[in-house]
């Protein structure tokens, strides 16, 4: 659902909780829920599932799992347990579901977690995802609402998966595991977690459905901060610009633009295609990190050393307020 409709719906329901152990709930539009277990640890919970983004069921399973697990990393935690969520039509062969689940299981295993159950529903269209739980030490919790003036903003993956998936669906490129967008979506965000904890990172969120700019706006709102994005520095996958110019821009990008543009200040000279790419909804996107300026280069070095090669400094926190300036 679009963020506007969703917030209208959620506003009408009373989710208020007096439970003091609920550390992060619905209040700050964060990536996942965080609940205190004891004085040392908290549990992180998140759920995500969607319709196939690629034709190959095994790859789809992996992408869906990488995407669902990402929320745990974005909160600074490590995943422990996962449950499958499956919607599946009776007209499709069982083999397809076997492949989807095999893909999901492989990715969860790669993340060091265990699938301990699940639930299936008969549906017209296949959908797959997971509910994932992870643990985090209190001092390691990374909400999306602690960005501070002077911080540098780091993005750990290139953007453009939504536009790329459109191109795959449109038959303009192959959707196999060699496709750069598929590779991008298959990559777990696990390698970014330790470098974040070792470099005093203040805030983190993963870039998914709202696009890079949408998630920057959410970070700005949550942190009461003004973020400035240097578009020249944003890593964008090769080929995405071409596809965007051809009009392979997913509907979600237009929704994101509608919903978030009010909280942005976009340089008039910026090309329309760049704005489209910045609002492109991502699947299993990278982490957007707010790190104290004097730690930014160390963080980048540690990320690179840990195999997060695309990581780049893409902007900074330039003041208070709730907007994103796009240069």
């Amino acid at each position: 659902m679009g963020p506007k409709t969703l917030s209208q719906v959620l506003r009408q329901v009373d989710f208020f909780s007096e439970d003091e152990d609920l550390l992060i709930g619905l209040g700050t539009a964060d990536d996942a829920t965080v609940y205190k277990i004891d004085e040392e640890r908290a549990i992180i919970q998140s759920v995500d599932f969607f319709t196939p983004v690629v034709d190959d069921p095994y790859l789809f399973g992996q992408v869906a799992a990488a995407n669902a697990i990402s929320d745990i990393y974005a909160m600074g935690g490590k995943p422990v347990l996962a449950m499958n969520i499956v919607c599946f039509p009776s007209c499709l062969e069982e083999e397809v579901l076997v492949e989807i689940l095999r893909g999901g299981a492989a990715k969860v295993k790669e993340a060091g977690a265990t699938i301990a159950g699940g639930h299936t529903v008969k549906d017209d269209e296949p959908k797959y995802g997971l509910s994932v739980s992870g643990f985090v030490k209190h001092e390691n919790i990374l909400p999306n609402s602690k960005a501070k003036k002077g911080d540098k903003l780091v993005l750990t993956k290139s953007i453009g998966t939504g536009i790329y998936v459109s191109a795959i669906k449109g038959g303009l490129c192959e959707g196999g595991k060699e496709n750069p967008a598929v590779k991008n979506m298959l990559t777990l965000n696990d390698k970014a977690v330790d470098p974040m904890h070792n470099n005093d990172v203040r805030s983190c969120t993963d870039v998914t459905g709202f696009g890079l700019l949408g998630h920057m706006v959410e970070m700005a709102r949550g942190s009461n901060a003004e973020l400035t994005l240097d578009t020249d520095k944003v890593p964008i996958m090769d080929g995405v610009r071409d596809y965007a110019e051809m009009g392979l821009v997913p509907g979600g990008a237009y929704d994101n633009k509608d919903n978030f543009i009010g909280d942005t200040e976009i340089n008039n000279n910026l090309e329309e295609v760049m704005v489209d790419m910045l609002f492109d909804p991502q699947t299993s996107g990278g982490l957007l990190i707010s790190v104290p300026a004097d730690k930014a280069s160390d963080l980048l070095r540690d990320l690179n050393k840990n195999g997060v090669e695309e990581a780049a400094i893409i902007g900074e926190v330039t003041g208070e307020g709730t907007k994103v300036i796009v240069e």
């Binding site: 965007a244 110019e245 051809m246 009009g247 392979l248 821009v249 509907g251 990008a253 237009y254 929704d255």
Partner: peptide, 16 residues
């Protein structure tokens, strides 16, 4: 039947 699709089709035409 939606503006997003119309914009996308227009982008394609312009690109070509």
């Amino acid at each position: 039947d939606n503006e997003a699709a119309a914009n996308n089709v227009k982008k394609l035409a312009t690109k070509l």
